[in-house]
């Protein structure tokens, strides 16, 4: 039996998100040239939440879009079932902007690598920053997040489930520990 452990409850997620929002504002001295791009699927609700918080803090809307990076993955031909391709919706110009990539969990870094490549095909941003709710370690590429909700030591085979509740639903982050001896595929962030 695999063990489930709640890492962040609803209040903890809210505090982490608020802190990230303030850090984004502080780091960029406002949000004038900031745009958010959530990585589908996990980064999508987080990007919505972050955009909302930034708007509340700064009193002005922050453009947000969503990006599917499947077509940029380096492991597309290495997975048993290749992932469903979702729509990419970035209906603003990223040229010269500060793009904050948003994803729920940072793991091997391969998704972020793919996302940066994809972003470049939309234009030339001034800079790219990365915001994640959980950094669980095990990086396979030299990638580091600018804004982290929580650093979480994990075993390689563990799984981290992030849920941004809608409406009255609770937010939460759960760690599912790997069964002993159960090997997990490497380089597969699909099951994060």
């Amino acid at each position: 039996m695999s063990k489930e452990r709640k890492i962040l409850d609803s209040d903890a997620v809210k505090r982490a998100m608020t802190r990230i929002a303030h850090e984004v504002v502080e780091r960029n001295k406002g949000v004038e040239s900031v745009v958010l791009v959530g990585i589908r699927k996990g980064g999508e609700p987080m990007a919505r939440r972050l955009a909302q918080l930034l708007t509340e803090i700064e009193g002005r809307p922050v453009p947000r879009g969503f990006m599917d990076v499947t077509m940029y993955r380096d492991d597309i031909f290495h997975q048993k079932t290749h992932p469903k391709v979702h729509k990419t919706e970035i209906d603003f110009d990223i040229e010269g902007k500060v793009v904050v990539l948003v994803d729920d969990v940072l793991f091997t870094g391969r998704t972020i690598r793919a996302a940066m490549d994809a972003l470049m095909d939309f234009g030339r941003p001034r800079s790219i920053q990365l915001a994640v709710l959980v950094d669980r370690g095990h990086r396979e590429l030299p990638i580091r997040a600018d804004f982290v909700g929580r650093n979480l030591p994990t075993a390689r085979g563990d799984r981290v489930k992030v849920k941004f509740g809608e409406g009255a639903e609770e937010d939460q982050v759960v760690l599912i520990e790997a069964e002993e001896n159960a090997a997990e595929p490497a380089g597969n962030e699909g099951g994060k």
């Binding site: 077509m71 469903k84 470049m120």
Partner: peptide, 20 residues
């Protein structure tokens, strides 16, 4: 059809090419 709907947007990008 769903995959095509997701991919159609690529043709509207400045760089109409993905490395897949």
């Amino acid at each position: 059809l769903d995959t095509a709907a997701s991919l159609q947007e690529i043709s509207y990008r400045p760089v109409k090419k993905v490395p897949t």
